[in-house]
Design a protein around this nucleic acid. Sequence first.
DNA 1: TCCATTGCATAAGAATATTATGTATGTTTG
DNA 2: CAAACATACATAATATTCTTATGCAATGGA
Lengths: 112, 112
Amino acid sequence: MGSNQLYKGSLATIILKLLGEQGRMYGYQITQEVKAISEGEFVITEGALYPMLHKLEAQGLLSVETEMAGNRMRKYYSITPNGKKEVVNRMAELEDFIRHMQSLLNPKIDLA
Amino acid sequence: MGSNQLYKGSLATIILKLLGEQGRMYGYQITQEVKAISEGEFVITEGALYPMLHKLEAQGLLSVETEMAGNRMRKYYSITPNGKKEVVNRMAELEDFIRHMQSLLNPKIDLA
DNA sequence: TCCATTGCATAAGAATATTATGTATGTTTG
DNA sequence: CAAACATACATAATATTCTTATGCAATGGA
């Protein structure tokens, strides 16, 4: 991801959540969508993206359909039932993470 | 850190911010403090902690003083002027990260 | 025609973590 | 009093996840 070390570990969560909401997407589309939503801050490199998509597929969290758009190959990924369960866990972890980081790092600003 | 992948990449930020606020601390103390503040969620392993402390010292962001508490050695770490500057950057990055993660992953709940 | 973009993929290397050890002292508990 | 647990440092082997570099191939614009 960008110049920010903090992004490490969040790629799978981002992909799963996005596919859980947007329906099926292909790899390149994911990079563009994430970049747009994050105002150019989350730049997913191919070297990170494709191995992660393959891994999530191997874990049964995503499924794939290969299609041709003209002469161009696209591999559309969709979230599986197991993937949907995983998203719930991941989101809970994200909320915990954010909450704990804020209490650790912003002791003065306390969220109710 | 714990079972949560998201913690990856945040260790240096946690250490720097904590030392920036609490003054000097020794390694073991940092692990206990972080664990307490995060309600048991942030468990820093020794294999991650000590190499990171050495690295931050090598980068000139922390300084060390070795002292004896009875017969036990303690290495107290303090933040340097350069470390203080780095904390400012890290906190800005953390805020960006949290903001973008929220807009990406919680599109319905929009923070003002 | 050349360069940027779209679209996939992998390999080499760096960074950061876990797990497993090792050394040593102090404290608590059966 | 012995065993277990806590304190306190450290490193090595391994795993994970990332960046950077490279490769192939089609498309589209200057």
